[in-house]
């Protein structure tokens, strides 16, 4: 996967709590057998009407957010189904960073395996970012090396990401290759481990 050290981009605000992965990518698009091409279906039921035309009343369809690469959302972002198609769709659409007050565990993991940086910030700061991005064209810089989120003026916030996913993201490592360096330990474990 592509390493992510620092990213500067336009912010898209999605002021909803409990955005589930069924909303991020509905089930009818999970039948494909490749990892590519899911971006066109992102938030499908919000972005498109019954006749598959783009809805003008959904904010992500506004030209203002066309090049957005940082999504700021509400608490429990990515809850529900484990479908990795959700981060695949976000990534393919152009999102590199998701900032929220909290994330669902499986979605959070899935992001870090796909080069998407999930950033947890307190609710008050999230509300400030959402307000800024709703009123103006708003850019943020997210620096994973410094664990900081800043804008061009006065906003600055620190965030914490556990060291393991942080290093994976900074270096873009292939996790399986890393694990396979421990093959001897796995083999030793298997010799004494009983599975009925």
């Amino acid at each position: 996967m592509e390493p992510i050290k620092q990213h500067t981009g336009l912010v898209y605000p999605l002021n909803r709590t409990n955005v589930d992965t069924d909303q991020i990518i509905p089930k009818q698009f999970l039948k494909r057998i490749s990892r590519q091409g899911f971006g066109q279906y992102l938030f499908y039921n919000w972005r498109y009407d019954e006749k598959d035309n783009l809805r003008s009343d959904f904010s992500l369809n506004s030209p203002k957010y066309k090049t957005a690469s940082i999504l700021v959302g509400g608490e429990n972002f990515g809850c529900g189904s484990s479908r990795e198609h959700a981060p695949w769709a976000l990534e393919d659409f152009g999102f590199k960073v998701i900032i929220a007050p909290s994330f669902a565990d499986i979605f959070f993991n899935n992001c870090t395996k796909n080069g998407i940086l999930p950033v947890v910030l307190p609710e008050t700061e999230i509300q400030q970012l959402i307000k800024n991005a709703e009123t103006d064209t708003y850019q943020l810089t997210v620096d994973l090396e410094a664990n900081k989120v800043t804008d061009l003026t006065s906003f600055e916030a620190s965030f914490h990401l556990a060291e393991y996913p942080r290093q994976m993201l900074l270096n873009g490592w292939d996790e399986i290759s890393v694990t396979l360096t421990h093959q001897d330990k796995i083999a030793t474990f298997e010799r004494k481990h009983t599975v009925y």
């Binding site: 990795e84 499986i106 993991n109 796909n114 556990a162 393991y164 399986i176 694990t179 396979l180 093959q183």
Partner: peptide, 20 residues
């Protein structure tokens, strides 16, 4: 517990998973 597809590949290849 449920896992994503990258982790499915990891478990297929190594029969293990990294967990806190």
């Amino acid at each position: 517990f449920g896992i994503g597809t990258s982790e499915v590949e990891h478990v297929l290849a190594t029969q293990t998973i990294w967990q806190a």
